[in-house]
């Protein structure tokens, strides 16, 4: 963890220095400096976007995990029509670029339904739908990795289908898919930057807006890179903590 942080900071420093050396660019860090009145206001404006970024990513990942699980569940059964539907769902939403779906939901759905969606809501729908295809694949792999013997033991004990899922299969599957689910959350944090195009006021949108006012793209986007770096390193760290905690309470297969 520490090593990654150190490496990231070093890399950024190198980039900045090489930038200085190769051009006569005069840095204007004062526009985002905490020691300057205008810098302070700008900085605050930029940083406040972090709440929007986190909240939209959290809501989206929650929806997409639930959707993904529902789409993956038929893989446990031999129900052909359900399996086919789930296959189609995954293929379709995996094929559509996220940005395209964002635009389609935000500008298209109101025309179709007459319903005006807020940018937040439209963003959540688009991100969750796109991501759920990948979540479904993750869950499918996780569910199928549970040995047949576990299902048979649950059946032999007379457990109902719901109990078998709730007490035997899902707890084991979730433990196994937690690392890839964590990755998806990190990915979602980054993907939320795409919502800047429909005007959702998260980190990237705010940076864009400030660039238009201040004409300092290098400084502002560099700060944006650092913001994402810190945010995502923190998120990865939390995910790893969670994995460790589950790993400690978990015991691997009996054989």
């Amino acid at each position: 963890m520490l090593n990654i942080t150190r490496f990231g900071l070093l890399l950024t420093a190198c980039l900045l220095l090489s930038g200085c050396a190769e051009s006569n660019y005069t840095w204007g860090w004062h526009i985002v400096s905490p020691f300057d009145a205008r810098g302070q206001t700008n900085l605050q404006f930029l940083m406040n976007g972090v709440f929007s970024t986190i909240s939209v990513a959290l809501v989206s990942i929650t929806c997409s995990v639930i959707l993904g699980l529902l789409v993956a569940l038929p893989s446990l059964s031999k129900n052909k029509p359900l399996l086919f539907l789930s296959r189609i769902y995954v293929e379709v939403f995996r094929a559509v670029p996220m940005l395209v779906l964002i635009l389609w939901v935000y500008y298209g759905v109101p025309v179709l339904t007459g319903l005006q969606l807020s940018v937040f809501f439209a963003g959540v729908i688009a991100l969750a739908l796109c991501d759920s295809a990948f979540e479904a694949e993750i869950f499918r792999a996780g569910l199928q990795s549970i040995e047949d013997g576990q299902r048979e033991a649950a059946d032999a004990l007379g457990l109902s289908y719901g109990d078998k899922l709730r007490f035997i299969i899902l707890p084991q599957a979730v433990r196994r898919v937690l690392p890839p689910l964590g990755n998806q959350f990190v990915y979602m944090l980054k993907a939320s930057s795409l919502l800047s195009v429909i005007g959702y006021s998260e980190l990237t949108r705010r940076a864009n807006e400030l660039v238009v006012v201040e004409y300092r793209p290098l400084e502002i986007y560099t700060l944006l890179v650092l913001e994402y770096l810190v945010l995502i390193l923190l998120a990865s760290w939390c995910v790893r903590k969670l994995e460790h905690r589950l790993a400690r309470s978990d015991r691997t297969a009996t054989r």
């Binding site: 040995e147 048979e152 033991a153 032999a156 035997i168 084991q172 297969a253 009996t254």
Partner: peptide, 14 residues
Amino acid sequence: EVGMVFQQFNLFPH
């Protein structure tokens, strides 16, 4: 009404 014991035990590891 029917209990079963398996070759591979099939205990729930979690």
